Computed example of a mutant assay.
Amino acid sequence: MSQATQATAIPAAKVSSSDIPWNKHVRQKQTVSDWVINIVIATLMVAVILAILYPLWFIIIASISDPKLVATGRVTMFPRGVQMGGYQRIFEDARIWTGYRNTLIYSFVGTALNMAVTLPMAFGLSRREFKPRRVILFLLTFTMFFSGGLIPSYLLFKEVGLLDTMWVFILPSALSVWNLIIARSFFETSIPEDLHDAAQIDGLGYFGYFWRIVLPLSSAIIAVIALYYFVGHWNDYFTGLIYIRTTNKQPLQVVLQSILLSNQSAQNTATFGDTAQQARQVADQIKYGVIIVSTLPLLILYPFLQKYFNKGVMIGAIKG
């Protein structure tokens, strides 16, 4: 019998797909210790989620509940004695709509200018053939740790005519060095250099390569940086407090602060007894309502950018 005949005569061992350790349908048997660890991890995750979400949920239900029930601790999980008096007092103030309008203008115009400055500059600093890039990046990074201070900034803005104008919210913060570094790192590590070589063969210059190839491939980092800039403009309280004197140019955050202060003053000037207690309860309800009014637009905007935000953060975490 030949060797080939002997080889075919020997019965081959039947190997099931379940015996392959890397089969995706095979589930490893979990021991008791594995179950304990999984339960502990799940419990910790649920506890962290509740610790994050419950304060926000309490503010929402407290803003629409009876202030007396909130003050006595009878509002815990669900609203009780629903009333919208706090929101009514907030929106009766005409300044709230002016503040919303101003903040939306400052946020959208400021974010557009931020992106127009940050992305091209980050792309230029990411090109290795650009020799002065390390010196320029060092000078930019230096400004993250050292600044002129409040008084020199105030005098400078006064000299250039930025005081009490909308441009004081936009031009001084046209570039964030931190966001510039993030975008530069993304362009260096996530955009293959072969694309630039192919673009040069096709006759594209740097501007065409940046506009037609780099930007369409950078949607994740663009969304992340735009969100950072927009949130920064939306929460900008200090600029309006220091550099703006005209009431109809104040941002939403300053307007909300003035509403809170006026209600606290009314609470302090109220007479003793039930009137003072009622004024304090209404002031607390207005305080909860102010928190919701100031954060609601961001809560609405974030879900639409969440997938890009997560992707951009993961890209930066993996590739450095």
Rank of each mutant, 00 (worst) to 15 (best):
P192I: 07
I151G: 04
T118C: 10
I201F: 09
A223S: 15
M166D: 08
I151D: 08
I182A: 09
G205S: 02
Y209H: 14
P216N: 09
L137P: 09
F123G: 02
R127A: 05
R133K: 12
F187K: 02
G205C: 03
S153Y: 01
F187R: 07
E129G: 05
F210V: 00
P216F: 07
I136V: 14
G205I: 00
E193K: 14
F138S: 13
G205Y: 03
S126P: 04
E129T: 11
P172M: 00
S173P: 00
F142V: 10
I222H: 01
L241R: 11
Y154I: 05
R127D: 00
V117A: 06
L217S: 11
R134T: 12
V177I: 15
W167A: 09
L163A: 04
S126Q: 05
Y237L: 15
E193V: 12
V109F: 13
H233F: 14
A226Q: 01
F123Q: 07
I191M: 04
L156S: 12
T111L: 03
F238N: 10
P152C: 11
F238Q: 14
I181E: 04
S190V: 08
S185K: 11
Y154L: 13
Y206E: 15
T141A: 14
S173N: 13
D164G: 02
P132F: 02
R134V: 09
S176F: 08
M144I: 11
F108L: 15
E159H: 08
F187T: 04
